[in-house]
Amino acid sequence: MFSKIVTSALLAGFCTGLIAALLQFVLIQPVLLHAELYEVGTLVHFGNGATDATPDLPGFDMMRDGLTLLFSALIYVGYGLVLVAAMGMAAEYGATITARTGLIWGVAGFVALHFAPAVSLPPEVPGGAYVDITARQIWWWGTVIATAVALALIAFGRAPVMIASAIALLLAPHVIGAPHPEAFTGPVPPELAALFATRALGVGLAAWALLGTLAGYFWARETAES
C-alpha cells in the first residue's frame, strides 16, 4: 500500500512541480525580480519622483531557476504525499477517488495550505516588512492544520455540531490574527506586492487543481491494478 501511495504522489507531485515552476517563471518571477530591485535599493519608491514601472530585469539564471525547478518539484511531491495519503484513507472508508473527485481534493488542499494562510498572511514579496519568521511559521502551521480539520469536518461530518466546529476552526486563526509588523518599513511599491500575492495565489490554485486531478488519476490507476 505504501508503495502505491508513494508512486502516485511522486508522479502527480513531480509533474505538478514542473508545471508550477514554469508558471512561476512566466507569472511570478518577473514580479519577484522587480521587487528585489527595490529590496536592494537599485530602485527607490518614495521621495524620488516617479519610478519607471518597467525596468530591465535579469533573464533566466541557470543556477537560481534550476533550484527553483528542483524545489518546486520537491514541495509538490511533499504535498502529493499528504494529499494521496488523505485520499487513500478516505477511500478505505468508502470515498470514490478518481481524477474528477481528485480535483475537489486538490482545491481543498489549495484552500488549506495556500489560501487560508494567505487570507491573513499574504504571499510575501521580497523587501516587505515582516516580523519574526518563527512566529509567522507557527501561525502558518496552526492555520493550515485548523483549516484542514475544518474541511474534513465539512466533507465527512454528519452532525450539525461538526459543521459548527468547522466554521469556528476556519475563523479562529484570522480572529486570533497573524503576526504583523508594528511599523511598515518595506521599500516595495504596494502595486508590486499586490500583484505578487494574487499571482502566487493564482499559480497555487492552478497547481493544486492539477495536483489533485493527477493524484486522483494515478491513485485510481494504482489501486485498480490490484
Binding site: V82, A118, P126, I133, A200, L201
Partner: peptide, 29 residues
C-alpha cells in the same frame, strides 16, 4: 519534505528554495 523544503531556515536551504518559498506563500525571511 514540505518542512525541509519550505520552512527550515538553514541558510543554504533558504537560499536554494528562496524563490519557491516566496511563490508558494511560505513565510520566508
Amino acid at each position: 519534505i514540505v518542512t525541509i523544503a519550505g520552512h527550515v531556515q538553514a541558510s543554504a536551504l533558504h537560499d536554494a528554495a528562496h524563490d519557491v518559498r516566496h511563490a508558494t506563500g511560505f513565510p520566508c525571511h
